[in-house]
Amino acid sequence: MLLTTTAISVDAAHAAAAAAPRMDPLHHFQVVKYIQMAPFGLDVSISNSVVWMWISLAAVFFFFRYAFRRPEMVPGRMQSVAEAGYLFIRGIVDENIGPSGKPFFPMVFTLFFFVLFCNWTGLIPGSFTATSQLIVTATLALGIFFLSIFLGFYKHGLKFLGFFVPSGLPVLLLPLMVPIEIISFLARPVSLSVRLFANMTAGHTVLGVLFFFAATLPWIGSWLPFGFSVVFTAVEIFIGFIQAYIFTILTCVYINDSLHLHH
């Protein structure tokens, strides 16, 4: 099934160009607008990226609904997994923000499973990885970035600007340190989004190349890349989790910095 879907998508991509199959792993990241629409100048076109984002989010929602269709005191397997996920996020929030992080729990919870399921559904052959789109990860990261700025000013007023002035430094060093602090702060959303985007793009590119070889090489030659691609899919499942985890942890760290200002 893996092989055939890859082959079909490769064929479909190149049938129009009327060319022989050639390696183009990047076409996995090609956004295709299925429905173009832009009411009031707002582009709300529905593309493969958006559709797979919805599939991922529906999977998150229905996974939890299904796991808790009949909540038991002694949980079944699905319920245990769902509860473990819940406790995992609660642990991250407690550890990185503390008791004042309670209001942010739903957001962090949503963020983690949003990213995790987008990473994972992207491993289904023929699917699309929404988190391999820099604009998607950047939207999430900038949302967190602006939230942290808002929280900082909301909680501390103008004292939040002290965030950029390291305490206990000689005044002479301040002209050096303040720009560095500002750069570090601005780098947060960028590195947050680039890290996720780059990991997803790299992983899926490698998978795409392996699948391409598996699909196009003659019979015997295809087994080796196919074996590699199976192993690498397992690695990608792990990386998808780790990246979602890092994204979530850093979100909590940023929120915590804005709430508590100890820097």
Binding site: I183, S184, A187, V190
Partner: peptide
């Protein structure tokens, strides 16, 4: 590595 590259690029951009 991402942190390193991003911070440097932001520095260059601001400069």
């Amino acid at each position: 590595a991402t942190d390193m590259v991003v911070a440097t690029l932001i520095g260059v951009g601001m400069g």
